[in-house]
Simulated scan of single mutants.
Amino acid sequence: MSVGLLAVVDDILSAALKASAKSAGVVIDDAAVTPQYVQGISPARELPVVGKIALGSLANKFLLIIPAAMLLTAFAPDVLPWLLIIGGTYLCFEGAEKVLEWFGFHHGSEDAGGRDEKRLVAGAVRTDLILSTEIMLISLSNIEPGLGVWTRLAVLALIAVVMTGAVYGAVALLVKIDDIGLRMAKSPSRRVRHTGARIVRSMPAVFRVISVVGTVAMLWVGGHLVLANLGAVGWALPVELLHAVEHAVEALGPVVVWVADTAVSAVAGLALGLVVVGAVLSIARAFGRRPSFTEGGESPR
């Protein structure tokens, strides 16, 4: 019996490793996107907020994504591409809003006393829902079809826990690394103090880079989801154009192909996102609400 149990565990681990390999890029995107939501809140609340977002991410995966994915793949597989198009469009919308903020355009408002924690967590969990959906659907599509239903569920559950731990462990480290630097700066060792001071000085630039990477990641993932799944629902032209660009640079190597794919998807995502932002603002104006502007642009942070 123990041998049989070990064989089942080995099958689950092997299947989880193979199935999750192709979703690694989205995991990196998720880790890059999330720290933006924690910026501007009290340092004492950073880890609790990351913890709430992580719990929300687990709830997304176990209460929504995995059950829905299993049911839809069994009974209504044609619905999945439409859901991914909707999710990708939402990511494009969020990414476009952040790009507009860099240029001084603000849609909506924040509390004068700081960022509202409940709304912040809710926004992060909504974004996580889209990214987690892609992670889990990519993983599901790469699970060997010969595995039983319960084994597939176990594989998805393992991937959900490991991916969530990896993403939010990295996020927690990123948002607290400046505190680690401050503690190091108080060390009796001169070398440790010097290293800690360098960490503290570098963190504003690091978070600016993370903000830009996270925004590009939302536009890239969202744009790619829309382009790829439009082909799945019958409009093949967008994804064919994407493949044509990839084919044109194929001789230059896989890195260049990846960069080209990312650039085209991000530009398409930004264009779609701006259209959606415009539509949202038009609806807001129709109900008597107006967007706000700052004096000049705002740097990514």
Rank of each mutant, 00 (worst) to 15 (best):
M136N: 06
T215H: 00
R119S: 12
V277I: 09
G288V: 02
K22Q: 10
I130W: 02
R285G: 01
L100P: 00
V38W: 04
E97K: 15
A271M: 13
G231Y: 07
V27D: 07
G297H: 15
T294F: 13
S14G: 10
E101W: 11
I65A: 04
V245A: 12
S141N: 11
T164Q: 06
V192N: 02
M203W: 05
A263T: 11
S14H: 08
V192D: 01
A59K: 00
P300F: 03
D111A: 15
G273L: 08
V26M: 07
A19G: 05
V9Y: 01
G148R: 07
I65H: 04
V280P: 02
H247V: 04
P188D: 10
A112F: 13
P67H: 09
V49L: 14
R201W: 03
G123I: 04
F287T: 07
V149H: 07
R126A: 13
A54Q: 07
F287Y: 13
V212L: 08
I12Y: 12
F287R: 12
L83V: 13
V209P: 01
V50Y: 06
G296P: 10
F293H: 11
A217R: 02
T34Y: 03
V99D: 01
T195P: 00
G51L: 11
L140C: 04
L131W: 09
L252N: 00
S14V: 06
A217Q: 04
F103I: 05
V49F: 11
F93I: 05
A122K: 12
L156E: 05
F103G: 08
A32C: 13
A172H: 08
A69T: 15
R126S: 12
K118T: 15
I177E: 10
I159Y: 05
G234M: 12
A244Y: 06
V27H: 07
V249E: 03
T133Q: 11
A154Y: 09
I283M: 10
G288Q: 02
V26H: 02
R183V: 07
L137G: 05
E134S: 15
G56M: 07
A24P: 01
V276M: 04
Y168H: 15
R190A: 14
G146A: 14
L252Y: 07
A248I: 02
V200Q: 06
L153R: 09
Y37G: 08
I28Q: 01
A251K: 03
S23E: 10
T73C: 05
A248D: 14
S14C: 04
L13W: 08
T89C: 13
M163P: 00
K186H: 10
L129V: 01
R45F: 07
A122T: 14
L17P: 00
I66H: 02
I135T: 11
F293P: 02
V209L: 14
A271C: 09
